[in-house]
């Protein structure tokens, strides 16, 4: 099975993952910054496909990170994934974006049985989720995703750029203090879960916050 995975919940990233490829990964790319998704995502995917010699008809499914993440960036990946899936006539699945980092943690030497993943939610808050990890298993989401202040998170080792920003109040792992969710891990996770017969999400974004709009109150009369 060949999956094109896309995640723009923080940086822009995409990957071609397959259970036939060594380590499961054919090709991937990710950006450093979190504000140029609209420019770099489509060229990145285009180059990824061209370099791997793959066309839309070779792909079995598309997986998109559905957040949480800053809204405008998050939508750029979902809009891209939905459009590609529609044109190519392929199934489209959603994955919670923090799962990508949970898998990256699980595959690293600093893995622990209970941990948090946190990314920057701006406005002095983080997006976070809590995972448990048993030997030889995929990480399991036990709480979240949520958005909130770092100081209010459970007292557990914390991984990801959101932990790095608030290392004064979180038990941030220094090796992960600037890591962001990456489509590479998201795709691998999706592949493993599909192989295990698990259901994935649909592509509905997890905004976790309402729009800032305020319903205007009645106008004060001059009397």
């Amino acid at each position: 099975m060949l999956i094109l995975a896309i995640d723009t919940s923080a940086v822009a990233s995409a990957a071609l993952v397959s259970d036939d490829a060594p380590e499961g990964v054919l090709a991937s790319f990710s950006t450093e910054d979190t504000r140029s998704h609209a420019e770099v995502l489509a060229p990145g995917i285009d180059a990824l496909l061209a370099d791997a010699g793959i066309t839309g008809s070779d792909i079995d499914a598309i997986v998109t990170g559905v957040g949480p993440g800053p809204f405008t960036g998050l939508r750029s990946g979902i809009a891209t994934a939905r459009t590609l899936a529609y044109v190519w006539g392929k199934p489209l699945y959603g994955m919670m974006s923090l799962d990508a980092m949970a898998l990256e943690v699980a595959e690293s030497t600093s893995a622990v049985p209970e941990f948090l993943v946190a990314t920057d939610a701006r406005r002095k808050e983080v997006y976070w989720a809590r995972y448990s990890l048993a030997d030889g298993q995929l990480p399991r989401l036990v709480d979240g995703p949520h958005v909130g202040f770092a100081a209010d998170l459970p007292d557990l080792p914390a991984y990801g750029a959101g932990a790095g920003i608030y290392e004064d109040v979180l038990r941030a792992d220094p090796d992960f203090s600037s890591e962001q969710p990456d489509a590479l891990y998201l795709g691998q996770f999706a592949l493993a879960r599909l192989a295990a017969g698990e259901q994935l999400l649909d592509s509905t974004p997890l905004y976790l916050r309402e729009s800032d709009a305020q319903v205007p109150g009645p106008r004060k009369r001059a009397l």
Binding site: H37, A38, L41, A42, I45, D46, L49, G56, T72, R75, S76, G77, A79, T80, A81, R82, T83, L84, V87, W88
Partner: peptide, 13 residues
């Protein structure tokens, strides 16, 4: 951003 990303994806696909 939404229309531009969708249009680019359409062009890629």
């Amino acid at each position: 951003m939404v229309g531009v990303c969708a249009a680019k994806a359409l062009a890629v696909a």
